[in-house]
Computed example of a mutant assay.
Amino acid sequence: MNELPNNPEQAQPPGAPSTSLQKAEPLAAPPRAPGRSLFETVQQPLPLAVTVLAVLLAVQTISSHSRINSLRKDMALSLQKGNAVNAETAALAREVSDQSKELQIKVGVLESRQSEAQSQQLALEQLYQDLSKNRDEWALSEIEQVLSTASQQLQLAGNVQGALIALQNADRSLSRSDKPQFLTIRRAIASDIEKLKATPAVDMAGVALRLDNVIAQVDYLPILSDEKPLLPAAPARSVRKQESKAKEKQTPPAALTLAERVGQTWSNWSQEMWDDVRQLIRVRSVEKPEALMLSPGESYFVRENLKLRLLNARLALLSRNEATFRDDLVTAQETLLKYFDTRARATQSVQAALRQVQANNLQIEMPTLADSLNAVRNYKAKQ
């Protein structure tokens, strides 16, 4: 055991309340007892000081212990609270971490879906553009094909109405798209429509119908070689009989003398005999005698050749071949004059119909659809 210091300030334990011990003023030395030494006198208050210091040290130790225990309890409580808080914080942190992971996963899913949606939107926009472009290309290709066909029919057959219908349908198809890029094409189509409307029309159908009527009458036209004796006597006899009956009614037979009756009978009989003789012999002037020498088979081929000529003229009319059309009609007229009886009304009506057909002018310069076709092709080339 350590010895206690002699200095009371040094004897104060650490952590003890800071009691400032002031130095006591020096007291007057007690009077020495007689017979005691100085050393004995000095050693008398030491046990008391030691006792006081021991008590103070014990009190200080107990106080320090109690404070340390209380500090330990407070520290333990604080540590428990801190541990609880740390546990809660850790739980919250884990929960927040889990939620953040879930949110990150959801955000990743949303981002992937957004990217998919954007890619799908871009694909749809591209598809729509392609479809729109393809639709325009298909429409323009169809219009180009229709206009090309109409132009060919216009140049070959002069089908003005068909070309007009084709142009109007093309303009209607372009108007439904309602795109300003098609204004140039529509302007060219409108110009071609005006040109076609200003073109003089030829009644091709009417001319073709007249030729069909002529072709249908060929089988009934009289041919010179097949000519039968005319019978004008029969109607003449009937007329004379009616006249004689009227005279008989006017003058009764009793009023006529024998000579008058004999003269009347003789005139009637001689007139009838003359009519019969006139039917036996007929005199006609024919420019080409071979026309009278046709056999029945040759007459059939003459009619068929005439029909073929008229059919060729009809085809030339529809194809607007002016030279072939007129050549066939001239040949048909010559055939009628050469082999058919031109005195018959049927032949005369056929000749009049052919002259009316020949009066039609097929030499009409048809406009082309080049402006519309070039506008469509230039627009397709720019795409």
Results as ranks from 00 to 15, higher is better:
Glu3His: 00
Glu9Ser: 08
Glu9Ala: 15
Gln10Ile: 04
Ala11Tyr: 04
Pro13Asp: 11
Thr19Arg: 07
Leu21Lys: 11
Lys23Ala: 13
Glu25Thr: 08
Pro26Cys: 02
Leu27Cys: 01
Leu27His: 00
Leu27Met: 12
Arg32Pro: 05
Val42Gln: 13
Leu53Arg: 03
Val59Trp: 04
Ile68His: 13
Ile68Ser: 15
Lys73Thr: 14
Leu77Ile: 10
Gly82His: 01
Thr89Ala: 14
Ala90Val: 05
Ile105Lys: 12
Val109Met: 10
Ser112Thr: 06
Ala117Pro: 02
Ala117Asp: 10
Gln120Ser: 10
Gln121Met: 08
Leu124Cys: 00
Leu127Ser: 13
Leu131Val: 12
Leu131Cys: 08
Ile143Gly: 02
Leu147Asp: 11
Leu154Ala: 05
Gly158Leu: 09
Asn159Phe: 02
Gly162Ile: 03
Ala163Arg: 12
Ala170Met: 08
Arg172Leu: 11
Leu183Lys: 15
Ile185Lys: 07
Asp192Ser: 14
Ile193Arg: 15
Lys197Ile: 01
Ala198Arg: 04
Pro200Trp: 08
Val202Lys: 08
Asp219Lys: 06
Asp226Gln: 15
Leu230Met: 02
Pro235Trp: 09
Ser238Asn: 09
Pro253Ile: 05
Arg261Glu: 03
Ser270Thr: 12
Ile281Lys: 09
Arg282Gly: 01
Val283Ser: 07
Ser285Asn: 06
Pro289Ile: 12
Gly297Pro: 01
Arg303Pro: 07
Leu306Val: 07
Arg314Leu: 04
Asn321Tyr: 12
Asp327Thr: 11
Asp328Val: 01
Val330Lys: 12
Glu334Trp: 07
Leu337Lys: 11
Lys338Phe: 00
Arg355Met: 11
Asn378Glu: 13
Lys382Arg: 05
Gln383Arg: 13
